[in-house]
Design a protein around this nucleic acid. Sequence first.
RNA 1: GGUGCCAUAGCCAAGCGGUAAGGCCAAGGUCUGCAAAACCUUUAUGCCCCGGUUCAAAUCCGGGUGGCACCUCCA
Length: 467
Amino acid sequence: MRLYNTLTRTKEEFKPMVEGHVKMYACGPTVYNYFHLGNARPFVTFDTLRRYLEYRGYDVEFCQNFTDIDDKMINRANEEGVTVKDIADRFIKEYYVDADGLNCKRPTYQPRATESIDAIIGLVQSLMDKGYAYVIEGDGVYYDVTKFKDYGKLSHYKLEDLVAGGGERKASYEGKKNPGDFAVWKFKKEGEPSWDSPWGEGRPGWHIECSAMIKKYLGDTIDIHGGGQDLIFPHHENEIAQSEAANGCPFANCWVHNAFVNVDGEKMSKSLGNFFTIRDIVKHFPYQVIRFFILSGHYRMPINFSDELLRSAQNGLDRIVTCANNLRFVIGKNSGDGSEDELLLSQIKTAGDEFIKVMDDDLNTADAITVIFNLVRDINTAVASGKVSDDALKAALDKLVELTGVLGIETEAEDDGIPSEIMELVEQRTAAKKNKDYAEADRIRDLITSKGYSVKDTPQGPQVEKL
RNA sequence: GGUGCCAUAGCCAAGCGGUAAGGCCAAGGUCUGCAAAACCUUUAUGCCCCGGUUCAAAUCCGGGUGGCACCUCCA
């Protein structure tokens, strides 16, 4: 598989350190609120990368953190008059509602920053011991960016430019040796949660938690580190500086960054106020549609959000799901002689091969969906021909479920069964049709529809589905 | 000021030097008692503009124009 590596700015052949085993980390949410569509993109993207790697036979260790201590957490807690932990507990729970809804598999590890304080302090200690960090009295422990010779290698920013660029921006330099220095440990302020440390009571800086949790759960060097493009600088740059300085070895071999979700061409963000939470969107569109929408473009390209685009995604997804449902209905009732099996079987094979080919090329989910649409057309044509055996249709269904499954798309509605009341109506309608009493047949169909079910007449008999 | 990304049909979108995938929408047709689902057909002699390289460019190079992002919490 080839992946675009932000570090080298090229697509590279992905080779994990240990054959068949992948260590992967993605920056998770700060749990102070419901997450929005822009936040959802990396969750879905890296879940899909993880699923695909597993599909290709890798054993994937996937770690995604919860940031449960920072300014936003503290502010929210103060606003509501509850503890920071209360906020964290609440929104981690809410996170799972949406993440599960989006069908993101639970990561192998999902640590909270506040449960990794020991690891954080250990890392800060290493930085102090090696002379990379210094204390600013009454403020915190800071990382000296000039001590790390590779600083800027991920973002490709030069230290001089960063300083120069500070022009109109009023960065607070007080006490810092360099404008780019950042806190790895912040000393306690009144009313803030804090932990003991060799330098005084306080809490971790933002960047240090990821470095620490990666070290703790995955090791000093990992294969893939992911996140949104806005994290490249300073967050990921600083993670590299901290981890490589402390551990003395490469931090992450491949850096994968997803592009943003835009609204009217502008980045969806909390600060612009143009964001839509998943919780709100799901009032209008199923989770599955949101996931499909996110995957319908390449992860490194911006996607625009609008109702119209979601609707378009929904219609497209329906085509795929309908195909699977039709297959499930027709298998077992079909009387095809198998004369067209060979064609369908070869189309299934092609779809599987193509799927891997496009996904191997930097996780091209947009092309992967195209492959699925092509398979859907082939299947529909085969079903309509009436010349395909059940075995071939079964193989087609299996492949369709397999490929959509790699994308985290489920084609199987939870089947509560069709109530007997509905089935009786369907039989009455069939009888009415037989007597050519079409008015009665249509009346019954309307009745069935009003009860939340649809009936389609097929060569194999009436197909009933929950709406 | 520094650093990147993007521009393809009505909408979305892939394409990574070999002659424009796919989806949505729309129109026409086939099937159906009618529907639904499905299938077929139609929809960019052209990929922002101007140069250049090449037998060959949406794809590479140079220069424009327009948009976006990062350099500050941000997915």
